[in-house]
Every structure is written in structure tokens, then in C-alpha cells.
Design a protein around this nucleic acid. Structure first.
Lengths: 201, 201
DNA sequence: AACATATGTAAGAGGCGCTTACTTCATCAA
DNA sequence: TTGATGAAGTAAGCGCCTCTTACATATGTT
């Protein structure tokens, strides 16, 4: 870059998108708590007041990061599920593997997606996205056990599988797995869970 | 069991213990992120610098809250397990119910016990407590399936059950359970998980 | 050309984490 | 009894943060 090329127009261009991306990086670098709006503004090369033209407060920016992450997670899950025969154990296991892999690749953002609802009430938009994703799990579980998607057995099986996947994701990224089945792959674990829980009553 | 403060109350009472108790209240009131050392000091009626005579920084105070919570959780688990016949499905289910009940009664502290390891490295003391608690789960699972505690099948079953209980705890306190098996009791859920997973291979 | 609107900056109020320098008081050796 | 010691407190302040207010600049419609 040449010297005089630091033209830097007064307006940024797409600050909103830049902030979301920068925020995601910062969250992964310093954790959800280490993130600050001021640092995000610094990295986006704007003043520390500029972000507030796009987000009413810090948590709204964080929500934007979460919303984007939920979209990507749901996309990953569908893509990987659809690489397997509909109704197969592999199909529903693929959903779980996508979930676990997402948690491992973006642990801090994943943590932010859950539980860091402190300080502001649940965004309905985020809740809807979460429910849509769980709907996919229910559908897929129903196909596996040959039931209708509204069959309580499918809902129960789907929820139990979700607890395994969700719990395993957290325990993995929290590094709480030293003592336990470290030698088992995620796939072995989730396949076992699927076999054990799909027909559990 | 908050370790007995042997000889610390020289000056204005037992500030260390007061701070831990006040901090626990604040965390439940405002969430792990809403907590501030300054507010804890205010509630304990000391200057904002006083806490730093007892804790080197904020996270050390939080660690003390977590350590105390882990002791209470382990105590609850043992107490409730031992109300059932050794090796019974009810015994290992009781472990899980104690875990879930703890999460529900102190959701913010529970959240703090996991994942808010940001900003400071894992305290070995806390890790040890966690591993000891998981050891209880392994032992109990081994008894249920008639295996030795070091049998890989027991470890695998114990870990899978832990993922269910841990995941269910988080999903419950994060209020992510609206769409799902809301009508199922924790006990029904955990019994089903126990039946499905104890012998899963 | 002129205005309305969106998007940026500069400056600052108020809060928090943590440090430094100083003060108070319980304990114990003399 | 006393007075040195050191643990446990306070007051003041630095640097960073969130968020606000007042103002400056760019864009597009008319």
C-alpha cells in the first residue's frame, strides 16, 4: 500500500458487516467475556462511537454474531445429513457430528449461542432459529424410527439425542474430557447414542 | 463445604467468606457477566480495594464460588444416590437428578462452573474436583452393569450418561426446551437415558 | 442547488478492574 | 505492659470500557 493511498473515505462502506466479522474473530481470540465493542471498532478502523450507529448496544452486536452462527450451523447440519440415506442412523448421526464440529471449530461463539443470554432478554428471532434447527432433528429422528414428526416418541428421542450432542459439545470444548472416553471418536460416541436412544421409552 | 476459615477473622469479621456468599447472590441475581467485584465490595460494606486483600483478582473470587458449588453438588449427588440400592437404575438416575436440580436451583453458578474459564487457566484444584465427581458416575455406572470401574464399557456408559445430564441441564436453564419434551419429567427422561445407554456399545 | 437522512468523529460522563500508598488493629515476644 | 509486626482495611487514581451528546460529512432525491 502506498503512502498517499490511505485515502480512507469518511464513510466505511459496510461497517455493520465488518463489525460482525471482527467481533467473531475477537470472541474466538479472547472469549465471549474478553470481547469489547471498543476493540471491535479499533479493528474496523472507526471511532468507538461508530458501532452504536448500527447496534443499539453491545449485546445487539453479539446477537448479530450469534444469528449468523446459527444460520451457518443449520446449514452445516443439513448439508452433512443429506450426504446419507434418509432415515439411516448415519443421517441423524451426521446432524450431531456437524453440531460437535461447529462447537469445536468456534468454541467461544458456540458458547455465546447458549447461556450468554444474560443482560438482555431472548431475541425472538434467535429463539425461532433455534427451534427451526431442533425441528430438523425431530424430523430426522422421526424418519429413523418410522414415525410421524409429531409423534411424541420422535420428539423424545430427538430431545435425548440433542442432550447427548449438546452435552458432549460443551464437555469437549470445556476440556472436561480428560478422564473420560478420550479414546472414543465423536462418531463412535454418537452412533452408540443413536442406537441406544432412538427407540428408548 | 466452604473450607472452615480457621483464623482469618481478625479485623472486620470474615470478609473472605462474606465476599464468596455475596458473590454467589450477585451472580444468581445478575448472571455471571453482571457480577462485579465493586458491587460485591459494596454489599459487604468495604472499600472496593478490600477484596484484593483476599483474592488476587476477580476470577479468583469466582473460582472460590465455583469450588464451593462443586463441593455442594458432589455432596448432593452422593446423598441422593445412596438413598437407592447400590447398582440399581434408580441409583444412577438419582445422580443425574441431583445434577439437574442443582443446575435449576443455581443456574448462573452452574453456568459459571463450566465454560467461564475464559481469562484464566483452569485451576488444577477445580479440575480435580470435577474429575472426582465424574469418578462417582463411573463407579455407579460400573455397578449397574456389573463391571469393574476401570472397564471401558463402564467409562463409555458413564460418559454418555453425563452428556445427557449435562446437556439436559443446560438446555433446561437456557430455556431451550419449549418445543421439546416439555411434558416429560426429568426423571422419566433420565430413566429412559439410563436404560438406553448403560449397555450401549 | 438544497435539503433530509445516514453514517461518521470528538469529547466526555460514569462504572469497573486493579494498584499504590497509607492507616488501623490483633497478636505475641520481651 | 508494651511496642514491633504484619494482616486487613481505606482513599485516591490509572486505564479501559459502555454508551451519550453534539457536531461533521457523505449520499441521493427533488
Amino acid at each position: 500500500m502506498s503512502v498517499s493511498e490511505t485515502k480512507k473515505s469518511y464513510h466505511h462502506g459496510d461497517l455493520r458487516t465488518s463489525l460482525v466479522n471482527v467481533a467473531r474473530d475477537l470472541i474466538e481470540e479472547f472469549g465471549p467475556n474478553g470481547f469489547s465493542v471498543a476493540e471491535a471498532a479499533r479493528r474496523a478502523k472507526v471511532s468507538s462511537a461508530a458501532p452504536y450507529k448500527h447496534f443499539s448496544d453491545k449485546s445487539e452486536l453479539l446477537n448479530a454474531v450469534v444469528s449468523d452462527a446459527m444460520d451457518r450451523l443449520r446449514g452445516d447440519m443439513l448439508r452433512r445429513r443429506d450426504a446419507h440415506p434418509a432415515g439411516s442412523l448415519e443421517a441423524i448421526t451426521a446432524l450431531g457430528l456437524a453440531y460437535v464440529d461447529f462447537a469445536k471449530s468456534e468454541p467461544s461463539v458456540f458458547r455465546l449461542m447458549f447461556g450468554v443470554t444474560e443482560g438482555h432478554e431472548d431475541e425472538p428471532a434467535l429463539r425461532e432459529k433455534g427451534e427451526a434447527t431442533f425441528g430438523i432433528v425431530i424430523e430426522t429422528a422421526a424418519l429413523c424410527i418410522g414415525a410421524a414428526p409429531n409423534d411424541p416418541r420422535a420428539v423424545k428421542a430427538a430431545y435425548l439425542l440433542w442432550t447427548v450432542v449438546h452435552g458432549h459439545s460443551f464437555l469437549s470444548i470445556d476440556d472436561k474430557r480428560k478422564t473420560s472416553g478420550d479414546e472414543l471418536s465423536d462418531e463412535q460416541l454418537l452412533l452408540a447414542a443413536g442406537r441406544g436412544l432412538l427407540f428408548a421409552q
